[in-house]
Simulated scan of single mutants.
Amino acid sequence: MKKLIKIASAIVLLIAIIFFSFAPQYLDKSMNKVVLRETFPKNSFYNSISFIADLHCDALLWDRNFLNQHDYGHVDLPRMLQANLAFQVFTIVSKTPRGINIEKNDDHTDQVALLNFAQLKAPANWFSIKTRALNQCNDLHDFAQNSNGKFRVITNKKELQQYIDDRQKNHNLAAGMLGIEGAHCLETELNNLDEFSKAGVRYIGLTHFFDNEWAGSAHGMKKEGLTEKGKQLIKKMTDLHITIDLAHASQKTISDVLRLHNGPVLVSHTRVKGVCDNNRNLTDEQLIAIGKHNGLVGIGLWETAVCGTDAAATAKSIRYVADKIGVDKVGLGSDFDGAIGTHFDVTGLPLIVTALQKEGFTKSEIEQIMGGNIRDFFLRNLPD
């Protein structure tokens, strides 16, 4: 009997070692696939673009050292530098439901808790959405601290302007900023917003894939609008200079925010019904209202976003937004590393420039779309 127990224990230990050693990386590789793995040529115009930026990347969700180059996934620091990507917003994913879809989800399951368990995160991460979200924020600051000056986290206008000035002298620099997908990580407590503000979070999507205590999601069960607590939240976000992100918000939530909030908004990663009609995409009326709020629309790279898989599909949606509300109100919102398959990783951004040229955009307009608009938006709206 003792021998059988020892054998069984050894088998269990071996299974655990295999699981914890390989499962997190397997999930990352299988969920963040890339079709094209090659070196993409960068012409002189691409290299001359001084500020290339992207509004949405979920790389912090995965157990991956951002400072090292990987042959899977979409974004890390070496590939950012290779791609001349100056500025990336890193977004916090704190909870997703099992069987996730764009039509209807409840909040009863928590796949990120299971992922944190597989990644051998501290037990507090398994049970507290707030804790795991703040730890992702801390991870980005740690990467900056250990990057030998090659990467910095931007939290205010002064830091952003200093970074812009420094990068004009040295292109071997990159920067990031923090955003959040889903205010559920506040864990029903409005005052928790202060902690995330201190951690450097500068935009928050009110909802992600399910309705929460603040607002309705485009993919929730009821899809209602702002709650009374949600109205308090957007007021406090405004006071703290934290921008409202309308990505994943329900139709009613979008309408409520645009009616009650006079300040700027953004949609960090989205698409438009005029090009790709589904439950997740913006109507023309919403685009026009966002434009009137001096907002910013980030166009994604994945198939559900743009009804295509290549750079041409993304450029087509960018053209649509530019024609509707102006070329100064659209940028990139890739959703890199967001458990999506893409045609290319961050090093494939030159393909988007080529596609934008084919859409008839001028060089100055392409510079705006590829990052100038994002730079100018945050220079206007970050805290001093």
Rank of each mutant, 00 (worst) to 15 (best):
Y163Q: 10
M177T: 01
T362D: 10
Y46M: 01
L13E: 05
F210S: 13
K273C: 09
L246K: 02
I234M: 01
D277T: 05
T347Q: 08
G331H: 09
D63T: 00
S217Y: 03
D284L: 12
G308S: 11
I129N: 06
G360R: 04
D323Y: 10
L356Q: 06
E103V: 12
L115G: 01
I18M: 13
G73Q: 02
E285R: 08
T109Q: 11
D142P: 01
I100K: 05
I11L: 13
T227E: 06
D63F: 03
N156M: 03
T309P: 05
L382E: 09
N116H: 10
L356F: 11
K95H: 13
L206N: 04
F66R: 02
V75T: 07
M80R: 03
L115M: 14
D239Q: 14
L27N: 09
F87D: 06
A313L: 05
S30K: 13
R64F: 06
L55S: 10
F127S: 13
L356S: 03
G295H: 08
D284T: 14
C307R: 04
G225R: 01
D194T: 00
D345N: 15
Q25N: 14
D28K: 00
H261I: 04
L287Q: 02
L382V: 06
K95S: 07
H219K: 14
A249N: 11
S334C: 13
Y72K: 09
I374M: 15
K158S: 14
S268W: 08
K158C: 05
N170H: 05
F51V: 01
K235Q: 12
N116C: 07
L193H: 01
K223V: 08
F66D: 00
D256H: 00
G295V: 09
A175M: 08
V153E: 12
R259F: 01
L233P: 05
K150W: 06
S217M: 02
M1G: 09
L178H: 08
F143E: 03
T155D: 12
A183S: 15
H184T: 02
K222C: 07
E365W: 13
A53T: 03
N212S: 12
N116E: 12
F45C: 02
Q136G: 02
R152V: 13
D310V: 03
L173G: 07
R79K: 11
D110G: 02
K130N: 15
L173K: 07
L186H: 07
T304G: 15
K42S: 03
L120E: 06
F22I: 02
G205V: 00
S48C: 04
W126V: 10
A86E: 09
R380A: 14
D335G: 07
I52P: 09
P264M: 11
D239K: 10
I299N: 03
C185V: 15
G216M: 03
H74N: 11
N281G: 01
E195Y: 09
H74F: 11
E38A: 12
H293Q: 15
K292N: 14
I100M: 14
K252M: 13
A313N: 13
M370L: 15
H343W: 12
N294L: 03
N84P: 01
M177R: 04
A215W: 00
D63P: 05
R271N: 15
